[in-house]
Design a protein around this nucleic acid. Structure first.
Lengths: 222, 222
DNA sequence: CCAAAAGTGTTGGTTTTACACCCATGG
DNA sequence: CCATGGGTGTAAAACCAACACTTTTGG
């Protein structure tokens, strides 16, 4: 005797795609073209398809809505509040992802007009998507402190100032330049290249790169 | 026009209930009475019911299988590997929970013979439940370091040695007695009572209690 | 008086924080 | 030569790790 599978609830996957643009942290939002919440902005997402894992669904959504693949993604949380979807019982398995803005391609995307919007001060989003973004932001902030995920937001070669800016933008606070450099260099994650960023009337900045462009987790960090 | 809800996958909720018993960390397992994996041990769980949130399902499972309620529970992760359930696409939203062993009541429980088993060295569990327990253990270990969740595993009044033992059992390593006491007392989470544990031929130990028996999170901790 | 666990401080090393000036370049 | 951001060191404080002996009790 085998128990059967009960399909009580719908399952969607929604993705919080972060990027840094114009000096602020932004997240990808689409405009809903259907009820419920027609016309409001929402996270890119969709129903889980047959024989698809939620990770695969997240990848599919990122590919379709933003033209990105092979980027850092991580499952966030399964949101299933009773009132979150007016149509009934729908669970959202959420992911967060990180990309550089100029790896994103909206061409070939659908009529939902994807756009990056600053994460701070978002209002009037569909479903519980504002909560989800808030949760994702907290997770991203804490990941910054003990992982190297920031590489996902930077050019392959970057200046230490760019690195520090990424931290400040995400954490929402200023960091001390000398202490930041000392600390980060002592972690051994990055190495100086022989190239310099020559960007105008100022001293050229030495470019660094991550020794491994791969997620890694450290005991201690920031 | 409204999108409809697609119910592609089944959704189960499985719970990793930790307790400390006989000086080791244990987790609740039941014996499966149905296929698939009939006869193997598995986490207590079941299909999500209509209009039930996963948190409510976790509470229901804890009540039914272990007779506990109002204990610390937290969503762990949604497991949905392609091959995890031979019957098809089934997502497990997992929770972890903490309780004292003697708050548990198996009476009124069903024929699945719930039992606590040591978490280290578990083998031959149904589904991917061994992975889930491993993941839950890592989460519990990291929560110990920056939250007060340990209160869930202790008597309302406890000795500092009991507290330290709980940490050592969960972390799987010895801690220095003086440093542990100094650190924990400096956190200000616990207060000495006027009572002593008089347990035999040894010096009576002062009993402490948590100032607030409620989950709290600290910036820094262990 | 013995066995058992409770209780208690200090030191050295490491880490973190706070803080200000000179350098190299392009225009 | 000036404006701009790049780059660098030190000292005080806080924190962490290592370590051993005395106390109180019951039997």
């Amino acid at each position: 005797m085998s128990e059967q599978i009960y399909k009580t609830a719908g399952v969607t996957v929604d993705v919080v795609l972060f990027t840094i643009d114009e000096g602020v942290l932004k997240t990808l939002l689409i405009k809903r073209t259907n009820e419920p919440f027609k016309g409001l902005r929402a996270l890119p997402g969709g129903f889980l398809q047959k024989d698809e894992t939620s990770q695969q669904a997240a990848n599919r959504i990122l590919k379709n809505k933003a033209g990105v693949k092979d980027i850092y993604t991580e499952q966030l949380y399964a949101f299933d509040g009773a009132k979150r979807d007016p149509r009934g019982q729908v669970i959202s398995i959420t992911y967060f992802a990180l990309t550089r803005k100029d790896d994103v391609r909206f061409e070939g995307s659908d009529i939902q007009t994807p756009k990056f919007a600053p994460v701070r001060g978002l209002a009037h989003l569909a479903f519980d998507h504002a909560d989800i973004i808030g949760y994702a932001l907290k997770r991203l902030q804490s990941k910054l402190e003990y992982t190297n995920v920031v590489y996902s937001l930077l050019r392959p070669k970057f200046t230490l100032t760019e690195l520090q800016n990424a931290y400040e933008i995400i954490l929402g606070k200023r960091l001390d330049k000398r202490n930041f450099r000392k600390k980060f260099l002592s972690l051994g994650l990055i190495a100086a290249t022989k190239d310099y960023e020559r960007g105008g009337k100022r001293r050229p900045a030495l470019l660094y790169k991550f020794k491994a462009v791969k997620f890694s987790e450290l005991k201690k960090f920031f």
